[in-house]
Computed example of a mutant assay.
Amino acid sequence: MKQGTDHGMAERKNALGQPIGEELAGWSARPRPPRTPMEGRLCRLEAFDAKRHAADLFAAYRIDTEGRNWTYLAYGPFETLEAFTAFAEKTYTGEDPHFHVIVDKETGKAVGVASYLRIDPACGVVEVGHIHFSPLMQGKPIATEAMYLMMARVFDELGYRRYEWKCDALNAPSQAAARRLGFTFEGVFRQATIYKGRNRDTAWYSILDSEWPALRQAFEAWLDPENFDAGGQQRQRLADLRPRT
């Protein structure tokens, strides 16, 4: 049920003639994201279970032998399975961040994680973050499907108004991914935080509920098996399927 904003409405003013935001008639706090699985054609997102996921994730992350994927995360890398498992059992099981493990349906193995965080049911705002895709899914359709499934849950299932993506402003691949997925750049918060003993300027991106229907259509067209040739190469880019803004 859509409870979002019609951004095409005329500007509203109060009795003093001051501009004010649109009244959200009927708005109510949204549910928190559940731990139920999200099912796609290529992947399944599910709650972390150390016995089923820890070893697979550790092995998948170790394929990145230089540890590049940990550069812009506030933790890691981990040298042993025991150290990673202890970290994952503590970090991947909390309520906020609210993690899901991405399982490749073809192999049945865990290949990455992503989370909802800064969850604000009252305002219908949630961020996606702690995204850690192993080399087994980077640059592949499974990565796009995982992000699509998380968006669909937020907008279609839960009725949130705003979906955020934030990253280190120096993290060029993350910023490129946000733009490809249809997020709108909103600016940089300078000296926003400190992690691993260094400064972080944070780049902010968002998708609004009013933008989601067109984005959903683009994702579904891109993920359609007919969009890929016999060699697995895309016929149309995701960016070309999105409406021009």
Rank of each mutant, 00 (worst) to 15 (best):
M147N: 12
V111R: 08
Y160Q: 13
A10Y: 09
S134H: 01
F48N: 01
A218Q: 10
P33N: 08
A59I: 00
A172Y: 00
P135D: 00
L45P: 05
H98Q: 05
F133I: 03
Q3Y: 12
E127A: 07
L238S: 05
G76L: 14
G17P: 09
A214C: 11
G124R: 04
I142Y: 00
A218F: 10
T93D: 01
G4W: 14
C123V: 08
T144F: 08
G21V: 07
I102R: 00
T202N: 02
P77G: 14
E95F: 07
K105R: 15
A192P: 01
S210H: 14
D120H: 08
D229F: 02
G40P: 09
T202V: 06
I63N: 12
A214W: 08
L57M: 14
R153K: 11
N69I: 13
W70I: 14
R190N: 03
A172C: 00
S210K: 09
D49W: 01
E82W: 06
G187T: 02
D156N: 10
R244V: 10
A50L: 05
P34Q: 14
V113Q: 11
C123A: 12
A178W: 03
R216G: 09
S115Q: 03
D168F: 15
V188L: 08
L238H: 04
G67W: 10
L24S: 11
N69D: 08
H100R: 15
P213V: 03
V154K: 01
H130W: 11
R153S: 07
N69W: 06
P135E: 03
E39G: 06
H53Q: 05
G232L: 06
T93E: 02
W27A: 10
L57Y: 06
S28W: 09
E164V: 15
T91W: 13
A55N: 12
A83K: 03
P34W: 10
R200D: 03
R35L: 12
P19F: 11
S210C: 14
A86F: 09
F189I: 08
W165S: 08
R118V: 01
L81E: 15
E89N: 08
R52S: 12
D104V: 02
A15Y: 13
F133P: 04
A110I: 04
R179T: 11
S174C: 11
P225L: 05
S210P: 00
E11F: 00
M38E: 12
L136C: 08
D96H: 07
E226I: 05
K90W: 12
N69Q: 13
A169Q: 09
L158G: 10
P34N: 15
Q175H: 10
